Computed example of a mutant assay.
Amino acid sequence: MMRLDKPIGVFLLLWPALWSLWIAGNGKPDLLISMVIVAGVIVMRSAGCVINDYADREFDPHVERTRLRPIAAGEIAPNQALLFFLLLILLAFDLTLLLNALTILLSVIGAFLAASYPFMKRYTHLPQAYLGIAFGWAVPMSFAAQTGQVPAVAWWLFLAVVLWALIYDTLYAMVDRDDDVTVGVKSTAILFGRHVRSVVAGLQALMLLVLGWVGIQAGLGSAYYAGLSVGAGCFVWQQYLVRDEEKSACFRAFLHNNWFGAAVFAGLAVDALL
């Protein structure tokens, strides 16, 4: 249920946390804080997978990609999954106790976001935006842990992460779009309809602009912008992959966002070294 055998979710949550730590720590984040944040990312992503399976237990048996998940397949009882989720949340909270008071306070909000996100697809066509808020919460937490405050640049980076989630989770939702329509699940892939690729392209351009502004505010150098240029190339490749909106290609485009995150982090790391 934790899907540690499919680490893409860990990476998509981890990259923004690392971006934040490197900017907040001027390229030299505190080792203990970094270890706690990384461990927290792994635990919270695992918790998110568990509560997602619990929330979708009535839908998953009817969707080709999810029908073999443990609850849907009858291998784990829903109440067992819920208990496991609570244990993971407690573990994540225990990790934050090693950090400052502001980070602990922000972690409570993060836990609420993680617990409530899976239910959003019942009520809004924008669950991908809510996912972005949940995943993006690693940004203010990382800044708070490293600096004791959440400056303006952190919220601009938070906005970029929300946009990123809209991008990659829309690509992910395109894989299940037909099944989602059948079972009544809402998503941006359904909302955007035949304009989905154009909307995603616009979101990609906007995210790059916001990340550029982050670089200006943080006083970053040319290596960072070189990383953004590589990231822009990643987005172009993703657009090429989804040109026919074929399911397996959309899934490949979703997975490819790991390389985007890595490119941005590489630019930050090299910039710090220089």
Rank of each mutant, 00 (worst) to 15 (best):
T66L: 03
T66F: 02
R67S: 06
R67Y: 04
L68Y: 11
L68D: 10
L68I: 00
R69Q: 10
R69M: 09
P70T: 09
A73F: 02
A73C: 00
G74V: 00
G74T: 00
E75V: 06
I76E: 03
A77N: 04
P78H: 11
P78W: 09
Q80A: 13
A81R: 04
A81N: 01
L82Q: 04
L82N: 06
F84Q: 02
F85R: 03
L88S: 03
L91N: 10
A92N: 11
F93C: 14
L95N: 06
T96Y: 02
T96N: 05
T96I: 11
L98A: 12
L99C: 12
L99Q: 13
N100S: 11
A101M: 12
L102M: 14
L102Y: 05
L102P: 05
T103I: 10
S107Q: 00
S107E: 04
V108F: 10
I109H: 00
G110A: 13
A111K: 01
A111D: 01
A114Y: 01
A114E: 01
S116W: 14
Y117M: 02
P118G: 10
M120I: 12
Y123R: 07
L126S: 08
L126Q: 09
Q128T: 12
Q128P: 06
Y130M: 13
Y130H: 15
Y130E: 01
L131D: 01
A134H: 03
F135S: 07
F135Y: 14
G136R: 03
G136P: 06
A138I: 15
A138R: 00
V139K: 02
V139E: 02
P140T: 15
S142G: 10
S142F: 05
A145V: 09
Q146D: 06
T147P: 01
G148Y: 05
G148P: 04
Q149F: 09
V150D: 12
V150P: 05
V150I: 14
P151M: 11
V153N: 12
A154L: 05
A154E: 05
W156D: 04
L157M: 14
F158S: 12
V162N: 03
W164D: 10
A165D: 15
A165K: 12
L166I: 08
L166N: 15
I167L: 06
D169I: 01
T170V: 04
T170D: 04
L171G: 05
L171Q: 15
Y172M: 11
A173P: 04
M174I: 00
M174D: 00
R177K: 07
D179A: 11
D179V: 06
D180F: 08
D180P: 10
V181D: 11
V181E: 13
V183M: 00
V185C: 11
V185Q: 08
